[in-house]
Amino acid sequence: MKNETKSISEIFADALRADDSPFDGNCADRADDPPALTSHYSNALEALTAVAPLGSTVRVVGFDRADIFLRAGYRVVDGDADVTIARGGEREFDAARKTECKKLILAPTRAYAAADSPSYRTKDKAFAVMRLGKKPFAAVFDAKDADKNLASLFGEVVALDLAAFDLTFGAYMRGERADGTTASNIAKLITETTAELKSNEKNRTKAAETLVRAGEKCARIVERTPELLHNSGAAQTAEALRMLYAAEDRPLGMRGETEMLLSAYVTEFYIKSLTTVKTEFPPDNSRRIDSVCEYFGTDVRRACVYATAIYPPMKMRLYEYRRDEFRTEQLRMLYEIKRRHSAAWQVFKRLYPDDGYGLKTLIDKTDIGICLALAPDVFAADTMLSFLKQTGRLEKYIV
């Protein structure tokens, strides 16, 4: 009788878990114990020599050439290795974690916030998912190797602001104490980075140095609070937008750019939702699953798995009470984020050679509504946007 009461989503989730473990355990059998804190270095060779003796086998991911490691006395291999070193962003980091190795080194040219964390984002077909994998022994922060799209790097830093709010919101809803220190550290970092970039926005060398230093600080913040990584309504909406554009074979900018643009919309939507509370009908998950399949070209099996379950009435009433109880604190945080974002936006635009002219067409505004509405069902995160789905506030954007 118990199985008969399971929802379709639960049945599909059980089937998928039988095939796909949410834990990426690569390297676990052979790995040395990872450090409490990932060590930081300014170039890849320095990091490698610090964590592995000469003669060790090394697999490189994302490097144009491997001769720098060969000349230093290491053996470069294509398969299992003593050390895997990956240069790039989350895609390269994901590939590196799938190699059997003892130690992992990440050399980000973007996605700096993920450089120290065992948590990382990968894909299950069209859907983005968070995994728990091997913690890096070392991370490389080389200003000379930063991605040329400096605006996207800045967007990744600013994106942590809304993630900190959503982390706080989730704590309020669960009845836990909110971590104000993390939010304060992020706010301070964004304010200082914005001010420093404002005086160097056309000096690309100095701007890159500023952004890599900020990225290194982001990595430390996320290392201590890994649940912060991609935990925002903007990150969820960005994933929905990525899926939509992929389904329609349209190009999309880098993640930092996308989340920077969407953060403004999501922050304003949060403020409006807290100042004009309305009672709506509960969400219709069947309709939402159909919409995810229609707009994003996904298969129904995975759409059922990733659709967030509807809260039971008692839990929903408690969450609505807590939302109202902590409304003042939430609005204060959001208005402060809006102010910092407004200042950062001016600098963000000037980091482009065209001073942001191309941003007018980077995202089609007509796509934002459907992506905002379906975001909680394409990327799981404990955010205010996921809560707003439960209130029914997102249903009117599904057309």
Rank of each mutant, 00 (worst) to 15 (best):
K2L: 14
N3L: 14
D19W: 06
P22C: 09
A28W: 06
H40Q: 12
Y41H: 15
Y41Q: 04
V58Y: 04
V58E: 08
R65Y: 10
I68C: 04
F69Y: 10
D80M: 11
A81M: 07
A81I: 03
D82A: 09
D82S: 12
I85K: 04
L104T: 00
I105E: 02
A107Y: 15
A111Q: 01
P118R: 05
K125E: 03
A128G: 09
P136W: 08
K144D: 12
A146E: 06
D147P: 02
D147T: 14
D147E: 13
L153I: 13
E156V: 01
A159Q: 06
A164F: 05
A164V: 07
A171C: 08
R177Q: 11
E196Q: 15
R204V: 11
T205S: 12
K206I: 15
A214V: 08
C218Q: 14
A219K: 06
I221L: 15
V222I: 11
R224D: 15
L229H: 05
N231Q: 11
A234R: 00
T237G: 03
K278P: 00
R288D: 05
D290N: 14
E294W: 03
R302Y: 02
V305R: 00
P312Q: 02
P312C: 07
K315R: 14
M316T: 07
L318A: 14
E320R: 15
Y321M: 12
Y321N: 11
D324H: 13
F326G: 01
I337E: 02
A343G: 07
R350C: 10
R350G: 02
G356P: 01
Y357S: 10
K360G: 13
D364M: 02
A381I: 08
D382C: 00
R393D: 08
I398T: 04
